[in-house]
Design a protein around this nucleic acid. Structure first.
Length: 802
RNA sequence: GCCGCUGUGGUGAAAUUGGUAUACACGCAAGACUUAAAAUCUUGUGGUCUCAACAACCGUGUGGGUUCGAUUCCCGCCAGCGGCACCA
């Protein structure tokens, strides 16, 4: 191998290697290893992709060598704004752009030797695929989990388009930077809140790390409390009672006023000029403005009063935007003595503060007294409330229902039809998919409607129920829709074409593949970024659980992912997030051109712990390059010497097999590489079998070099068997047993000397202590002091207390 | 404010059912090879003291605690990172 011919070598083996595909009928134990599929952007594979995919690939190759039938698939999450925007700008079809991008990604991935199962490649923008994304939506609708509702959305007045929450950055439009306001638009909503408890409980069945579990639990934000009814004392008011949610019913005696959100229905019909003005102002405020003004409370007295049901006192009802219309009932009972926000409000508007409990010397004018423990008092009051019939136990969640409508072109059309007679009717399953029509312009319209609304041939249709004239829904689905079930699609990707035909439309691809789903699900390891720990993970778990509930996927597997692995991020050499505009981005292709794919892969794995935040450093990369060069030279030297070895390497080699295996099992790629480096530093000569072992251990990490070196001595010309098809080496336990065991001897816990003890003597206390006390050096320490205690951990250490 | 995480050499980092702290790599220094440089190889490299070696002492953010023994466990504090946040 000459210095710069790694490219030929890479091409040679790429051609030689057979495509790896998981066999459904294999007798081996399965392992489903999933990496989050990428959005195929126009700029190609970036370092973040290369990093996480390499980790997945090393792990997948390792598991294959260990004898598992490994499913390691790849696909494209290709719907989305960047492609749409690019298409608008360049006046091209998003379909074509997507095709180009995915072709580029696939090529780059193949070059980086990612052993993806290309026979199972999927693409969310493929009608064969999104037919089932739409099918799932229809099932949600049929079971009452999807409904249309007028909801305030983020509105960009400059782009004249509705934005998803994730498209709003710091209250500003992601595209143009204009401030985002609110606007009411009728939208499809999915009732994910119905699954809140299931989504919390299901976490118990997974092996997600605490961080992920906690963030999901926090996101769902379950709190236990009570709904309490307050009678309104003004007889002219149309509404007779005001219901509030509270987690602290025990503070009910301290309620001195109430507050409702400006959107609360109570305020309808209020005529007072100041009230009308306040409502007008706050309703037009954006979330950003509301958040910015968060320190200073604003509000207005409604003129209405309520009766505190526990002590019959009359208390005023205020209106303020610090109360959210979207949580609880949109109204609160205010306990200024024991809640910071209520306290601030009371101080600002000079409302009374009445303590329920107190602490010696507490100044209630200055600060609310928050009692963390509620336990007994809570239960006592709860009982009283229920007896008096003024309220009941209740649970509230931070999780909101999922706004499922987007007014964009490049997404899955929502398969619904609006009939003047029958209302909203789903497109029958055998007529799916609703194809995305080809249009001339993808620009959003002035009124915030999807560009699809301008295509009459798409919009006008017949009602599936009555056959009359009807209009098709023109909103498309959010980006999350396609990724909600993609992990299932890989299992039966080969079936997508045959299920695409309308004639097959009555059949359900999930149910007909239950056997295969049973074999492959759940995903054993799901590798992805922390940014998807809440939304994507929650949405896809929800959809999966829904599919279980409707009997589409086997109920024996209740959670889709067993283990979630976070991959870290790689910062530019300036310690900043890589980005093209900052000029600090590293392009994997360029690095591969310069140093070769193996160096790139190994460097990415060596740079730090797999879930860490790392900084790109070309110097460290040179260390990896040197190592691979050393491996090459070492191997060639051993071949030249005909593998004549006088050295006894049994211990080193077997420790290496054990160590590398344990590290790879735990995604400890950096330490696995360190162990390989140490072995190559320590070993002088090896036998042929030992050399083979080393190359097998190296194969998942540096597939090209391992193969090239393997082929240079290990293979016959005919019937050559790739190093990647070899079995992972077994540890020979006997070789790990050493004759002399090194035992550190410490005085008062500080190591002073190391003695060597025969294996058979590790439990022989007398003999070891003899060894210790006869040690010349130790005598010096002990000459003037008295040992009062001797502690011996067999084979581990000896500690003398003086 | 709440939740989660992290803190170890000049740098990236190892080591946690409590048992030799700093593996591996970078960088640096010295040497070999070379006319020279690059590359490569060898050796050294936590701090203090010392010409140097030996020895000694100190040392895993910080202050305590438990223990024969703590980077690891417990309590308090400090700093940083990530997420959520007027959620009643």
């Amino acid at each position: 191998m000459a210095e710069n011919n790694f490219k030929q070598i890479e091409e040679k083996w790429q051609k030689f290697w057979e495509a790896t595909t998981a066999k459904d009928d294999s007798n081996k134990l399965k392992k489903y290893i999933l990496v989050e599929f990428p959005y195929p952007s126009g700029s190609g594979l970036h370092v973040g992709h290369a990093f996480s995919f390499t980790g997945g690939d090393v792990y997948a190759r390792y598991q294959r060598m260990k004898g598992y039938e490994v499913l390691f698939p790849m696909g494209w999450d290709a719907f989305g704004l960047p492609t749409e925007n690019y298409a608008i700008k360049m006046k091209r079809k998003p379909q074509e752009v997507t095709k180009e991008n995915t072709d580029m990604f696939r090529l780059q991935m193949k070059r980086l030797a990612f052993s993806f199962d290309w026979a199972r490649e999927i693409n969310t923008t493929d009608p064969q695929y999104y037919k089932w994304t739409q099918w799932i939506f229809v099932q949600l609708f049929r079971r009452g989990l999807a409904y249309k509702k007028e909801m305030p959305i983020n509105w960009c007045p400059s782009c004249k388009i509705g934005l998803a929450n994730e498209e709003v950055v710091n209250g500003k439009c992601e595209r143009c930077g204009a401030g985002v306001s609110r606007r009411n638009i009728s939208q499809w909503i999915v009732k994910i809140t119905d699954y809140a408890d299931k989504l919390i409980d299901g976490l118990g069945e997974t092996k997600f790390i605490e961080k992920v579990k906690q963030s999901q639990i926090n996101w769902i934000g379950k709190s236990e409390g009570a709904m309490v009814k307050f009678q309104i004392s003004n007889d002219k008011c149309l509404i007779k009672e005001l219901e509030v949610f509270t987690t602290r019913p025990d503070t009910l005696p301290g309620v001195t006023f109430m507050v409702v959100a400006p959107e609360h229905r109570l305020v309808n019909g209020l005529k007072d000029e100041k009230v009308v003005e306040y409502i007008r102002k706050t309703r037009s405020k954006s979330d950003l403005e509301r958040a910015e003004l968060q320190k200073e409370k604003t509000g207005v007295f409604s003129g209405l009063y309520a009766i505190n049901p526990i002590n019959n006192q009359e208390i005023p009802i205020w209106i303020s935007d610090f109360v959210l219309s979207s949580y609880g009932t949109g109204a609160i009972m205010a306990v200024p003595a024991h809640d910071d926000r209520d306290h601030a409000f009371a101080n600002k508007f000079d409302l009374p503060i009445v303590p329920v409990v107190s602490k010696d010397g507490w100044n209630f004018k200055e600060k609310a007294y928050i009692e963390v423990e509620k336990g007994e008092k809570f239960e006592k009051m709860m009982k009283l409330i229920e007896e008096k019939g003024i309220g009941k136990r209740s649970t509230s969640y931070h999780l909101r229902d999922w706004i499922f409508s987007r007014q964009h072109y490049w997404g899955e059309p929502i398969p619904m039809i609006n009939c003047p007679k029958d209302g909203w009717v789903p497109v029958p399953e055998d007529q799916l998919p609703v194809l995305l029509p080809e249009v001339k312009a993808y620009e959003p319209t002035d009124d915030g409607q999807s560009p699809l609304s301008k295509i009459d041939s798409f919009v006008n249709c017949k009602c599936p129920v009555c056959g009359g004239e009807a209009r098709r829904e023109t909103d498309t689905m959010p980006n999350w829709a396609g990724s909600d079930w993609y992990f299932l699609s890989y299992v039966f990707a080969d079936q997508l074409p045959s299920f695409a035909k309308a004639s097959a439309g009555k059949r359900n691809i999930f149910m007909e593949n239950n056997e295969r789903l049973n074999k492959w699900m759940p995903v054993d390891v799901y590798i992805g970024g922390d940014e998807h720990n809440t939304l994507h993970l929650l949405y896809s778990r929800f959809i999966y659980k829904f599919l279980v509930d409707i009997g589409a996927v086997p109920e024996s597997i209740s959670e889709p992912y067993r283990v979630r692995m976070s991959h870290g991020i790689i910062l530019g050499s300036d310690n900043q997030r890589m980005s093209k505009s900052k000029g600090n981005a590293i392009v994997p292709e360029v690095v591969a051109d310069k140093y070769g794919v193996d160096v790139l892969r190994m460097y990415l794995m060596f740079i730090g712990p797999f879930d860490g935040t790392m900084v790109w450093n070309e110097n460290t990369l040179m260390g990896v390059k040197r190592f691979l060069d050393r491996v090459k030279n070492f191997t060639l030297e051993q071949i030249k010497n005909n593998f004549v070895s006088q050295d006894k390497n049994g211990l080193v080699i077997n420790q290496l097999i054990k160590g590398v295996g344990e590290d790879l099992d735990a995604f400890g790629f950096n330490t696995a590489i360190a162990k390989l480096m140490k072995a190559i530093n320590d070993l002088k000569t090896v036998t042929k079998e030992e050399m083979k072992t080393i190359l097998k251990l190296l194969a998942p990490l540096a597939p090209y070099m391992a193969e090239e070196l393997w082929s240079s001595f290990a293979g016959a010309s005919e019937g050559y068997k790739s190093v990647h098809l070899q079995s992972w080496p077994e540890v020979n336990r006997k070789c790990l047993e050493v004759e002399n065991i090194k035992v550190p001897v410490a005085i008062n816990g500080k190591t002073r000397i190391i003695i060597e003890v025969l294996r058979g003597d590790i439990n022989n206390r007398e003999k070891i202590l003899n060894l210790v006390y006869s040690n010349e050096k130790l005598r010096g320490y002990l000459s003037k002091r008295k040992v009062i205690r001797e502690i011996m951990v067999p084979g581990k250490m000896v500690n003398l207390v003086i």
